[in-house]
Design a protein around this nucleic acid. Structure first.
Lengths: 112, 112
DNA sequence: GATATATTTCGATGATCATTGAAACATGGA
DNA sequence: TCCATGTTTCAATGATCATCGAAATATATC
């Protein structure tokens, strides 16, 4: 992932409404949700929601597909994972690092 | 992690200079770097750098400690990990989810 | 105390972003 | 075709943010 894309992804998430929308979609999983349903769950008015969905989409954080009158939005897990990787990339100069800087998801995996 | 803190953390990272600074500190590891060294590595002028370091610090993404004339900054790995966890929290409604939505760091762990 | 080095604060400027009602657009069904 | 429903675009407004030189502050050394 390029720096530019990472900044775009982070900026997309760095806003109350958009973060709420994205997390809602993460929790909904791969089947996604219609725009109206997202608005219902988050309490964001239609025009605002549309604005924010466009931002998220432009940053590659969500995908959309038309389904009749509905537009189904889904979290883009690839971009999400690329972002997580980018943030921890070359952590501690690439040396095996102490528990301090080990990503939570990795330690969870180890302790299982 | 609370939504408010997550937005603050994301906003702190959602900016070219700050993302560069943070990644530099992540790569430097727990021993951190002096402000001047960060400026040297990133090419950010002192006053701008100070502004951005304050933002990162306020968001809990970095810590600082005085060391003589120097101020040593370190990435805050706890906040970082909390953020990563927050983003993937309750992924797919808590159901065991397909490879699609498994965080990269977890899959890396598994394939090792 | 005086001087050199390291970092932060101040302040003015230009730029970008969030919000939302009203209107427009798209689709499906009668 | 006509209507109901779902979603997006438009446009105006207010708010927040990034930049960086100059000056101020803090610390170490002589």
């Amino acid at each position: 992932m390029e720096t530019k894309a990472a900044v775009a992804a982070l900026a997309a998430l760095a806003q109350d409404s958009r973060l709420a929308v994205f997390r809602t979609l993460v929790q909904a999983g791969p089947s996604g949700l219609a725009a109206g349903k997202i608005g219902e769950l988050t309490g964001i008015p239609p025009s605002s929601l549309s604005f924010h969905l466009k931002e998220l989409s432009h940053a590659g954080m969500v995908d959309s597909q038309q389904a009749g009158r509905f537009v189904i939005y889904t979290a883009n897990f690839s971009t999400m994972n690329a972002l997580l990787g980018f943030l921890t990339e070359n952590c501690c100069g690439g040396n095996p690092c102490s528990p301090v800087c080990t990503p939570a998801c990795a330690t969870e995996k180890e302790s299982t």
